[in-house]
Simulated assay, not measured.
Amino acid sequence: MSLLNDVSGTAALTICESLLLALNDRKILPETEIVGILEDAAAAHANVPDTDPKSDLHAAVVILINNILAGGNSVRRR
């Protein structure tokens, strides 16, 4: 993967995390909805067949999102 892809992906993740935090801080979306969004995103990548040329990428995305959920990076847990 090129450095440009890494930078683009990291920027997109940071922007999305910031948006989720802002939506929660402003009480637009409750924590349960934000967790649901992240779980849905992980699920969308979890069922990709092994024959898909990007199956390793999809698996890595699932791991990353699950780590975000476990660590509470996108949702400030009290």
Rank of each mutant, 00 (worst) to 15 (best):
S2T: 15
L3P: 00
L3N: 08
L4N: 14
V7T: 14
V7L: 15
V7Q: 14
G9T: 11
T10A: 15
T10F: 13
A11T: 00
A11W: 03
A11F: 04
L13C: 02
T14A: 04
T14H: 06
I15K: 01
I15R: 01
I15S: 02
C16T: 00
C16F: 03
C16R: 03
E17V: 03
S18D: 12
L19V: 14
L23Q: 12
N24T: 13
D25C: 02
R26N: 06
R26S: 04
R26Q: 03
K27V: 00
I28V: 13
I28Y: 07
L29E: 12
E31L: 12
E31Y: 13
E33M: 14
E33T: 13
I34V: 14
I34L: 15
I34W: 06
I34D: 08
I34M: 13
I34Y: 07
V35I: 14
V35G: 04
V35F: 05
V35W: 01
G36W: 00
I37R: 01
L38D: 02
L38G: 00
L38H: 00
E39S: 04
E39D: 07
E39C: 03
E39K: 05
D40S: 01
A41W: 03
A42V: 03
A43K: 10
A43R: 10
A44K: 10
A44V: 08
H45M: 09
H45D: 02
H45C: 07
H45Q: 08
N47Q: 09
N47K: 09
N47T: 10
N47R: 05
N47F: 11
V48S: 06
P49G: 10
D52L: 08
D52V: 08
P53E: 04
P53D: 00
P53A: 03
P53I: 01
K54M: 10
K54P: 01
K54Y: 05
K54E: 10
D56M: 13
D56L: 15
D56H: 11
D56Y: 06
L57K: 10
L57Q: 06
A59E: 07
A59N: 08
A59Q: 10
A59C: 09
A60I: 00
A60L: 05
L64F: 05
I65S: 00
I68Q: 14
I68G: 09
L69A: 09
L69W: 00
A70Q: 15
G71Q: 11
N73R: 14
N73F: 10
S74C: 10
V75C: 12
V75P: 02
R76V: 08
R77G: 05
R78P: 14
R78C: 11
R78I: 14
